[in-house]
Design a protein around this nucleic acid. Structure first.
Length: 310
RNA sequence: GCACAGGUGACCGAGUGGUUAAUGGUAGCAGACUGUAAAUCUGCCGCUCUUCGGAGCUACGGAGGUUCGAAUCCUCCCCUGUGCA
């Protein structure tokens, strides 16, 4: 008996991952495990382009709406929860399909993270204060003393990463790089079929522009207003693409049109970053079209069936 | 028609005689990423060659001029904005 199959559908925003995943899931008894760092939060609907309630009734979805916006879901949390969901799907005899665009979360799920200490808010706060007092160079110098190898790969201006490296090294009383030597806890027990969507850039950008504008006409502002009222304006996910610009408009910093244009821009930039991340992903079966394309959907179903019988 | 302000590389925008292919920013492209990642950061970014040290060409609305030397000064012309007619 060969190992069960795990299908992964990855690609930039608006490349048609949702449409493709629904099609494949319906045909092959699949269940979808979302890999999206914002869709995990409840009540963030329009800006996250979550699958509709109807679509979610049609096919079981996991890792969507699992936390309140005031909670913090990290890559590690995601990885654990997603693995749990995948295990259950397999036990049901169904096909797990991981779908998403959050590169780090996907890597945390598939390849695992190193077993390091969790976040320490106090330590972070102190380090950040130090950074504003004495400049970012200071933190980097500190890191160079404590973990030279990490300092080599992390640029001094990249404060969040410098802070994390210091946080890990201090909490563990050992250089972060040493902890990395122990390796990562990769996902075991599945044969993984990675499908990557990489449609023509120009067309993708046009589609992103259209979708971002549609989010506003579909009520993104009302949703943002509701979220701000219910959870307060400082909850983290309100900084995400679309919501951030909607907030800026609600605060009067941007006109409606400016907010739309800024959201479009943000999504385009994001899509590009996603592609540079995914290009490194190993063993991806790349498809240079949109996942909403019927021919593509058919092809992926065939591909999955063939792989399942190997 | 007169007066004033202004026309700078894809865009915005500095620069007012010389280390200026021209500060910044944006966009674009490429890259990094091990618990905030829809985050954060890095590089390239006029054209053509290059043994990667450089070399050549074209550029600051247009045409002339002054000067050893101009995006920067002068003349004329074209265009844009504002005010007066």
């Amino acid at each position: 008996m060969s190992m069960p199959l795990l299908v992964v559908i990855l690609g930039p925003t608006a490349s048609g991952k949702t449409a493709l995943s629904l099609h494949v899931a319906e045909r092959l008894q699949g269940e979808i495990v979302s890999c999206d760092s914002v869709a995990v939060y409840r009540d963030f609907e329009i800006g996250t382009a979550k699958p509709s309630q109807q679509e979610r009734r049609l096919v079981p979805h996991h890792l969507i709406d699992i936390a309140g916006p005031e909670e913090l879901v990290t890559a590690g949390d995601y990885s654990r929860l997603a693995r749990h969901a995948i295990g259950e799907i397999r036990d049901r005899g169904h096909l797990p399909i991981v779908v998403g665009g959050s590169g780090l979360y996907l890597r945390a799920l598939l390849e695992g993270l190193f077993s390091g200490p969790p976040r320490s808010e106090e330590l972070r706060l102190r380090l950040r204060e130090r950074a504003t007092e004495r400049g970012t160079e200071y933190l980097h110098k500190l890191l160079r003393r404590i973990d030279p190898a990490a300092a080599q790969t992390i640029h001094a201006n990249d404060v969040p990463k410098v802070v994390r490296a210091l946080e890990v090294s201090f909490s563990a009383r050992a250089p972060m790089t040493d902890l990395w030597q122990h390796g990562r806890d990769a996902l075991q027990g599945f044969r993984i079929l990675r499908i990557g969507l990489n449609p023509d850039r120009e067309t993708l950008y046009a589609r992103i522009n259209q979708r971002a504008r549609e989010m506003f006409s579909a009520g993104l502002l009302d949703e943002t207003r509701m979220l701000r009222e219910r959870y307060g304006s400082s909850v983290w996910p309100l900084n995400s693409l679309g919501y951030k610009q909607a907030m800026q408009h609600l605060r009067g910093e941007l006109s409606l049109e400016q907010a739309v244009v800024a959201a479009q821009q943000g999504h385009r930039n994001y899509a590009k970053r996603q592609m540079t991340w995914f290009r490194r992903e190993p063993e991806v079966h790349w498809i240079t079209e949109f996942g909403s394309d019927a021919a593509v959907q058919k092809r992926v179903v065939e591909l999955t069936k063939a792989r399942d019988q190997d």
